[in-house]
Structures are given as C-alpha cells and as structure tokens.
C-alpha cells in the first residue's frame, strides 16, 4: 500500500479520537459559560469543577437503548447518523496545524472542505425525513432553506481571501500571511471575516441561527426521535463542524499557525479556541432569530455585501498586479 494512503488512514483515526476529546471539553465549556452568563454555577458535582460531567453524560448516551419509531424508514434512519459524522473527519485532512504539519498536501484544500461540508445538511434532512415525525420534518425543511442560503455568502467571502492569496492551498494561504497580527488577512478583508463568521454560525446551526433544532418550537428539531448514540452522532458532528469552521477562519483570516514567540501549533490551537469561545458567547448572548429574520439577514445583507466585497477585491487585486508586478 502506498504511504500516502496509510498516512490518511492514520490521520483519520487520530481526528476521530481528537473530535471525541474536543467534544467532551466543549460540552463542559459550553455548560460552564452558559451557567455563569445566567448567574448559575453550571455542573459542579462530578469531579473537580464538574470536569467529569461530560464523560458521565457520554457514558450514559452510549448505554442507552437505540430505538426506532414504528413508521420510520429504517434504511435512511440509520444511514443519517453515520453520514453526518464520517465526512466531517475528512474536513480535517487539509488543515495545516503547524509549519508542514498537515495530513494531506492538496492544492485544493479549501475546496475539499467546502465540498464535503455539504454532507452535514444532507444527512440532517435525510434523518429528519426518515423519522416520520412532524417536528423532525419541520426541522429538516428549515435546514434546507438555511444551509442553501448561508452557503453562498460563506463561499463568496472565502473566495475573496483566495483572490488575495492567489491560492486554494491552505498551507500556501498561511505562508503568505505574516507573523504579526497586522500581516493577517483579517486586516485586508475585515468585511469578508465578519460575513464568514455570521454565515458559519448559520451553516453550523449554532444559536442565534439554531432554528432546525429550536427546542421551544420543535421539541428537538431534526433529531427528535433519535436516542442514545444516534443522537450522539449528530451532537458530535455539530461540535466537530464548529471546530472545522473555526479552523478555516483561523487559516484564512487569522494567519493560521503564524504568530510571535510561541510555537506554531500552539498559536493555531489558541486562535481556534478563542473563536470557538466566541461562538459559545454568541449563543448565550443573542436570542434566536425568527425564520423570516434569518432569511432576510442572509438575502438582504450578507449576500449583497459579499458580492460587493468580492467585486472590489477582484478590482483591487488586478490594480495591484498592474501597478506593482509589471
């Protein structure tokens, strides 16, 4: 077997382990932050500062019986949780965590992530449909219009950065940015960064855009009937997607592993954790938007802004090429 294939397989196993671990930490962070924002202590009984609480929750989830509703479509019902989790691991392949530290050296890394990210929405709607439950179906319907809508400004903002860098290779995009914060792409593309963050929240179904699983309206949305690890897979995929989205933002806008003094991988982890913490803060700060508001934000604000940003970027990149390169 070629070494490339073995390398990919080993990295996929490592990513699966990392995703499980990160999800445990994230659940704890989310509950603690939520608790303190609402002036509650959060979990504190199991382990010191409640650190073992997510582990206990995970064991409980694994021990639960897997139930399928009588009228559900069995093939699609069990396909959806697998299809939501497995492609997510592929998204970690082209991410450069440090200088030369990536699983797969591919020229189209950005495109790979964007292409395989589409599976999340797809498996959500398959799962939502297969359960034969009206709340799940409503959640699936919301997922469709949300993921299709928010994908476009996200693509356009990513494309603007790729215009500036002149490459779709993530390692090259990082290399092209400098060590200090004022050399990072976020300084030349601030609008694209804001658009990317907002539409990333929409794509990953995080509050304030968590309409597909709005508890107060749809019980649990697209995963209403899933029990045990069936639900656990959707849950893991949500956190894994959040990490991917934050990592892509770090690579494209925040200089990736570049930074003064500290070693590269540490900078990368630091930036990703700060972004994820920001997402958690958003969740417990802003109330959920209404569905018409959700679509209006996208089609009336993000989309025109992203298109204008892309056109301006293309114009200035061309001007700069004529002025300096010639």
């Amino acid at each position: 077997m070629p070494t490339e294939l073995i390398r990919i397989l080993i990295s996929l196993v490592a990513f699966a382990a990392a995703v499980g671990l990160i999800a445990l930490v994230m659940v704890w962070v989310e509950r603690k932050v939520c608790g303190h924002i609402q002036r509650r202590p959060g979990p504190y009984e199991v382990g010191p500062w409640g650190l073992l609480q997510p582990l206990a929750d995970a064991l409980k989830l694994m021990g639960k019986q897997l139930v399928m509703p009588d009228q559900a479509d069995p093939f699609l019902y069990w396909l959806a949780p697998i299809l939501v989790f497995v492609p997510v691991l592929l998204l970690y392949l082209p991410l450069p965590v440090g200088d030369g530290l990536y699983a797969l050296d591919i020229n189209l890394g950005v495109l790979l992530i964007i292409a395989f990210a589409g599976f999340t929405g797809l498996s959500m709607i398959l799962g939502g449909w297969a359960q034969n439950n009206k709340y799940a179906l409503l959640g699936a319907a919301r997922t469709v219009s949300q993921s299709v809508a928010y994908e476009i400004p996200m693509l356009l903002s990513v494309l603007a950065v790729c215009f500036v860098s002149g490459s779709l290779n993530m390692a090259a995009v990082v290399k092209e940015q400098g060590t200090w914060p004022w050399n990072w792409n976020v300084m030349t593309q601030p609008l694209a960064f804001v658009i990317y963050i907002v539409s990333a929240l929409g794509e990953t179904n995080r509050a304030p855009f968590d309409l597909p699983e709005a508890e107060s309206e749809l019980t649990a949305g697209y995963h209403t009937e899933y029990s045990g690890m069936g639900f656990g897979m959707f849950f893991l995929a949500e956190y894994a997607n959040m990490i991917v989205v934050a990592s892509v933002a770090t690579v494209l806008f925040l200089g990736g592993w570049q930074g003064p003094v500290l070693p590269g991988p540490l900078w990368f982890l630091l930036k990703v954790s700060l972004l994820v913490l920001l997402f958690v803060f958003f969740r417990w700060t802003y109330p959920r938007v209404r569905f018409d508001q959700l679509l209006n934000i996208n089609w009336k604000w993000l989309m025109p802004l992203a298109v204008a940003n892309l056109a301006l970027t293309a114009f200035f990149v061309k001007v700069a090429q004529y002025a300096f390169v010639k």
Partner: peptide, 8 residues
C-alpha cells in the same frame, strides 16, 4: 451539496 438538497 446543492442540487440533491433542492431535489429533496
């Protein structure tokens, strides 16, 4: 990612 979602 797009066409199949719209078909659905």
């Amino acid at each position: 990612g797009a066409v199949c979602v719209l078909i659905f």
